[in-house]
Design a protein around this nucleic acid. Structure first.
Lengths: 191, 191
DNA sequence: ACGCCACCATACACAAGTGTATGTTGATAT
DNA sequence: ATATCAACATACACTTGTGTATGGTGGCGT
């Protein structure tokens, strides 16, 4: 039957560790950090706990690895946008607002971030990560508004509202009737 | 010593059920809905599980009771503001923005709501409750903006941004440097 | 004075999860 | 071909949590 399980397929430096983390993010999105448990994870991956404790010291190690991974992903997302200076700042802001927020992919990402923010209420490391990412994003948006001609304090305020709108679009449950997020670009970007 | 434990102090129609729910909200704020467990709750209240299963059928019953209670509280909060038509709409909006968001009390409330929003990702009842509260709040804010002279669609957008800013103020971790929420009133309410 | 009943404790069976120690396998290098 | 080691399985002891069944106790009405 096919190639069975690729236990040692030449090119696997530590690819399975990533698989654990990916599955862990799945559980995080569904039930919060407390739902990221070793046994259910192993069952989902079709292996036993024996595997887990080879890749990670304990459950806490996985949690910290997840935090590090989330930090990396969120940072990269902003970083790549800073790199690609293709369009004008207002266009880029509009593009950000136009990003899909109803796809399974984006909904999952929102749930993950929501879970991490809740986690940050008790875990200092999680709080640090969230604070860091918030700072990076706000700085990026403020810079774009600055490039549009706004002064520093004004750009900061506008960036905060912009960011707030993005988050609310993901966290607030609206029916199609109340969903006005599509029209917000004009109000925020074009004043 | 004093009155010991008020097991049957005349006026207690079901006051202990409320105590269970209050403690449950504490745990909800700290660890999400999965952390709302019977044993830890009983230990926190200084009783055994025997008490719990007298007040509630099972763990799920407590969760639903919490949802009902949160719905009631959040609805009442808005309802009482609608009642007290003391000041002008713009003043009331500014007052809402001026509400404290760094006190332990408000931080706890934010954590509770964050936990419920995460919970709403998998539980249909929680999703219904969140959707209901979001709708009530947005409607209230839109009405205020409407009273300020804005047309319906414009008032709706402004209400969404206003609500988004409120939420972000609670969920986004900012350092004092980036905290511009205090100056947002002018930008949102006074255009 | 006494029984009723709200309220809680105790005890039990069971399930699920954690961590550790150790066995097993299959690919790779030499 | 065989030793080696990454990657996983198995078995065990332990902890925590759930639900139930049943026993105890102190106010309260009559």
């Amino acid at each position: 039957m096919s190639t069975a399980s690729p236990r040692r397929t030449a090119a696997s430096p530590s690819l399975d560790t990533a698989a654990w983390i990916d599955a862990a993010f799945e559980m995080l999105a569904e039930g919060g950090i407390d739902a990221v448990r070793v046994d259910p994870l192993a069952k989902r991956l079709g292996v036993t706990r024996g595997s887990f404790y080879w890749h990670f010291k304990d459950r806490e190690a996985l949690h910290q690895a997840m935090l590090k991974e989330w930090r990396k992903r969120a940072s990269y997302q902003i970083g790549s946008r800073i790199e690609s200076r293709t369009s004008a700042p207002d266009e880029r802001l509009k593009q950000t607002l136009a990003l899909p927020n109803s796809t399974p992919r984006s909904k999952r990402a929102a749930a993950i971030e929501l879970a991490i923010r809740l986690w940050a209420q008790r875990d200092a490391n999680a709080a640090k990560a969230v604070q860091h990412i918030d700072r990076v994003r706000l700085k990026y948006y403020a810079q774009l508004f600055g490039e549009m001609g706004l002064a520093q304090p004004e750009a900061r305020k506008r960036a905060f509202m912009f960011y707030a709108t993005l988050l609310a679009r993901a966290y607030v449950i609206t029916d199609a009737d109340t969903d006005v997020s599509a029209d917000l670009a004009a109000l925020l970007v074009d004043p």
